[in-house]
Design a binder for these strands. Sequence first.
DNA 1: TCGCTTATGTAATATTTCATACATAAGACT
DNA 2: AGTCTTATGTATGAAATATTACATAAGCGA
Lengths: 276, 276
Amino acid sequence: MLNKLKDKKSLNGKFSTTNFTKLGNYGTGHTSFNTKGLNDFQRTSVIAFPKKETVTNQLLAFESGNDFADFMPHLESTSVAAGEYLYKSDEHSNYVYFPETAVISHLHTSADGKTVEIAMIGSEGVSGLSEIFGTQPSAHCAQVTVGGSVTRIKTDLLKQEFHRGGDFQIRLLDYMNAHILQISQRIVCESFHVIEERLSSWLLMLQDRAQKDQWQITHEQISLILGVNRPTITQAAKNLREKELIDYSRGKFYIVDREGLEFRACECYSTLQNVH
Amino acid sequence: MLNKLKDKKSLNGKFSTTNFTKLGNYGTGHTSFNTKGLNDFQRTSVIAFPKKETVTNQLLAFESGNDFADFMPHLESTSVAAGEYLYKSDEHSNYVYFPETAVISHLHTSADGKTVEIAMIGSEGVSGLSEIFGTQPSAHCAQVTVGGSVTRIKTDLLKQEFHRGGDFQIRLLDYMNAHILQISQRIVCESFHVIEERLSSWLLMLQDRAQKDQWQITHEQISLILGVNRPTITQAAKNLREKELIDYSRGKFYIVDREGLEFRACECYSTLQNVH
DNA sequence: TCGCTTATGTAATATTTCATACATAAGACT
DNA sequence: AGTCTTATGTATGAAATATTACATAAGCGA
């Protein structure tokens, strides 16, 4: 639990800039989303072959390296910034991405341009797998919600590896199953749960994947992810802040009382927690 | 197009019993859902080895039978009635089902017992595939929405066949991709589209799969599928009937003006039409 | 420090659906 | 024909969110 933030002085928007400087040193320094910009994956920082120790993605956590001797050298480590697109909808992706500390959102767009998150992917999962399974380009875009590191591999190479069969194939199929569960639960969530519960669940899912108590995101961005209007998020967030479960200010978001937030969240959070 | 139904006399609930008898001879005679009953798959009618000609499911439509010489003899043909469960949630299924003329709904249930359809499956698809991919029992139940025939195969046998690799594996993976698309689009639909549009899309999807102009379903059943209250469906259906797009009476549903219905539907229908 | 940009606060109205309750009517079964 | 069950019709108030508009304030950069 984050004791500093439990200090009442830092709650309800009353914390000072000093508090932010002290607490806000997790991020990558990227402060704005490029929601409408072009794919700027090109300007991504260092690309390197990862050491085995730095690969913490659970799908890449191999007990014995032997089976993957041909496979591991093709992995690349890179970092991605919040707002960046890994790939866009109706576009083929050259890479498949295994998040390490980054968190990725799969977003669908409606005919009139509204967006909604289909799934959230962290180090438990992988983004871009539809390139392996299907022939059509993906209907969603993959946007970075929380910046951090990812391990990536060329789509063609992963496809080869996948069709060799064996343990890694089984692992990816099992994840695909869990992924379908996550998307399905989202339907339940949007059908039956009010925005304050949904926001709570979403924040908990995000914290599990980002593994921080604080990250960069605005109400506007959350509204585009949950598929609701911005003032609706502001209202829900305000309620959660008044209950001292979260805190936020100008694009910085904090989890203050995790257990309280779990209590406020709909069942969707705990249901999915047992899956991955 | 169904000319008889375009006769104005048969619209707006004014058609007579005679009309029904004349037009209503598609079904299997099953008139009520067993929404709360036990799995009554046991009392399913004839089970037989299908002839190749009767297998119209698109995933089983093999150009050359050679590759599947070991596989085809394990297929069983059977018929299922509306309301029946192929399998329930949190239960392992012994079979994987390839619908022929039947239509299957995958339903999720919320913590407080409300249900919503995750996906609709007809002869373009398959139900129970999660048994092949994952280790956990499925979180959804599979209920028959429109009675008809299905081709089924024992889960274990299909799993073996799948892991042999080859064309059939590729075909199932490609379907899995399309299936994810359908579920994803449902999220968009529930987020942004009003019930009259959603009902229109759903009816069109159902007609594509049931391949009839008329089938058995009540407002109550539709409400459990679309995850809304029953009077909400009645209101939306009434509006569509007043526009002479559909007709219905006591559990019988008709598509009257398919093109008109397509015009009234949200984009979700046409988006998914291009996938399968 | 000033001004600009942007994030958040807030309010008022509209729309959609919920939740509930009860009325009506179709048709199945005596 | 009479009765019963069930599907549909309808009304009403409540709740949730949309929609729009504008106010306020934080913090960045000149």
